[in-house]
Amino acid sequence: MNTFDNSHEIVAAENCLSTTIDGETVVLHTDAGKYYGFNEVGTFVWESLQEPHTVEEVYEAVTDEYDVGYDRCREDVDELLAELADKDLVTVDAE
């Protein structure tokens, strides 16, 4: 499982295509040929990752947009980002 430092920069992998179907974001990993679906908050995070952001910036974007405390947001976002990294859906730049 990946762990992230707040300063790590993270961005959606280039080999992904995404679209919205029936209100759900669907992503195709073109190399793996696998399809993934995001729920609403997952979609918000995924869309924010279309440009490089630090992990801390992702926390801030989510807490600004949604009614959630920082600690829970951090725990949830870390879990999501780790899962995305495991699936090669994001690239992490750990400077």
Partner: peptide
């Protein structure tokens, strides 16, 4: 202070 209702972000494995 308009924030949207929060649910934990999820990604599930099943453009076309």
């Amino acid at each position: 202070g308009s924030n949207r209702e929060y649910t934990s972000p999820e990604v599930t494995e099943f453009v076309v």
